[in-house]
Design a protein around this nucleic acid. Structure first.
Lengths: 140, 140
DNA sequence: GTATCTGCAAAACATTTGCAATTCT
DNA sequence: AGAATTGCAAATGTTTTGCAGATAC
């Protein structure tokens, strides 16, 4: 769960990122949704708000955010890179019916870390299957 | 750990795959290495053996293998799709120094499944960090 | 002889790069 | 003014598609 950010400009500055309009809006959008959007989705969601926005800027910004550690890149499908403003360790569930991606908590992950004696910089866990909604629809 | 396959042709047939030369060699190569190779690596490794091999066939074959459930697609980096002939649940460790990907066992994964009440079709867990070898080199 | 499989060439798509214009301080 | 940021257009790289020839049953 992403913790509430009360001062977004400060949040970015503290991460070493100058808060331009584009950067603020991109992060704000990412933090406001739990849909784990792609570059295309982010661009589409903001281009009416910032008509001059370019995809290059979305790419640049997301790359910068990741470098500075305030977002995670989610690679579930090889043809679909998604982004998450919640950098705490949690699982991702992708529905193979509707394509949606949801979060789920992973309580006892200390045990997983104990399995590896290397230096860990990132941990990812994801599951694919059929979500509750699609399951209902299919059974009709 | 990939179980030993004594009759590869039968293994493919049982999975509903006609064992052409290309398919046999591609699976054989995938099962023989623990490097989790990319399409490019697979193609490069086999093209001297099968000079007429095309990348399209490698793509087609891997897609078929995945559909029939005898390989896994490993998405760790967004610009690098890797493949694994071991479809049992295990973790992947990617070294951010040397780029290598290793397997590691995940013993108590029943607990992870219990966290999700949806129908699960695939489970993936991966970690990034610095491998033992690179750690040694860096400390020099 | 009909189905399937293979592999070339072109197309499609996502991402990156070079660079000029813009913005910020 | 000087440095960083943005955004266009072109380049790159990977994967897919259309189709013709080869192979298998």
């Amino acid at each position: 769960m992403l913790k509430k950010i009360d001062n977004l400009e400060k949040y970015l500055r503290d991460a070493g990122i100058k808060p331009s309009i584009q950067r603020l809006k991109i992060f704000e959008y990412l933090a406001s949704t739990n849909s784990h959007p792609t570059v295309d989705k982010i661009y589409g969601a903001l281009s009416s708000d910032i008509p001059t926005l370019s995809k290059t800027t979305v790419y640049n910004t997301l790359k910068l955010f990741q470098k500075q550690g305030i977002i995670l890149i989610i690679n579930i499908e090889d043809n679909e890179t998604r982004f998450d403003a919640d950098v705490s360790f949690h699982g991702h569930f992708k529905c193979i019916e509707c394509g949606g991606v949801e979060d789920f908590p992973i309580p006892e992950h200390g045990k997983i870390e104990a399995l590896i004696d290397y230096d860990i910089s990132e941990k990812h866990f994801y599951i694919k299957g059929i979500c509750a909604n699609c399951k209902k629809t299919i059974n009709k």
